[in-house]
């Protein structure tokens, strides 16, 4: 009888990290492991195992509580190597890891592969129309001279994987941040609409 799985569908594809590492010689130190969900990017993303520390098996092994493992890896994310070793422990239970066979390693980890480009983002953008009008009126009311349009300082969120920075003095940004609707990447959606 075929097994029919009930419940949430996942985007994960593969095994948990312990399932891979626990079956390898020397816990797979030196081997290449891939997170399947990072394979959606055009640039290669992979991890080279450097050190493995085992963790105890859960008392009652269930699909919701699988064995974890502490693995230190050299992480290459979208063709860019992370400066320090990255520890994988809390996410090691995710059944999303894939081992790269030894004969495919060289092909997968090409040194001439494209890498993620640093984005240089603008420092400011224009205010929303109503707020802009309000600010101009306030400035006029307080006796200030309005020579140029007031600009809104943009707040960017920085994470471990984010690879962008704000423009420095005299630099031109290579990416755009729009105020309001912006510029669509899918014009076919707005085919008969006047934007």
């Amino acid at each position: 009888m075929p097994i029919k799985y009930i419940g949430r569908t996942l985007d994960y594809q593969g095994k948990t990290l312990w399932e891979i590492v626990g079956n390898l010689k020397n816990f797979g130190v030196g081997r290449i492991v891939v997170r399947s969900s990072f394979e959606r990017y055009p640039e290669p993303s992979y991890m080279k195992i450097v050190k493995v520390e085992t963790l105890p098996n859960p008392e009652i092994s269930t699909p919701d509580d699988v064995r974890k493992v502490r693995v230190f890896v050299e992480k290459i994310f979208r063709g860019r190597k992370h400066p320090a070793l990255v520890k994988i422990e809390r996410v090691s239970y995710k059944a999303d890891y894939r081992l790269i066979p030894k004969d495919k390693e060289a092909e997968y980890c090409r040194s001439d592969a494209p890498a993620m480009q640093m984005k240089i983002l603008p420092k400011t953008m224009s205010f929303p129309p109503l707020l802009k009008e309000l600010i101009i009126r306030e400035m006029k009311a307080s006796g200030k001279e309005v020579t140029e349009e007031p600009q809104l300082q943009i707040v960017y969120r920085q994470t471990r994987e984010s690879y962008y920075r704000v423009t420095e003095e005299g630099e031109t940004p290579n990416a755009e941040v729009y105020s309001g609707f912006g510029k669509t990447k899918s014009p076919s959606l707005y085919k008969n609409i006047k934007l």
Binding site: M125, F127, P128, L131, L152, Q153, I154, V155, Y156, R157, V177, Y178, S179, F181, G182, T184, K185, S186, S188, L189
Partner: peptide, 22 residues
């Protein structure tokens, strides 16, 4: 197409709101 557009709009919206809030 729609997925990409939605993500773009939401990202843009969050950045703008965060900036205005600050």
């Amino acid at each position: 197409e729609e997925e990409v557009e939605k993500r773009r709009l939401y990202n843009s919206y969050r950045t703008q709101v965060k900036s205005i809030k600050q």
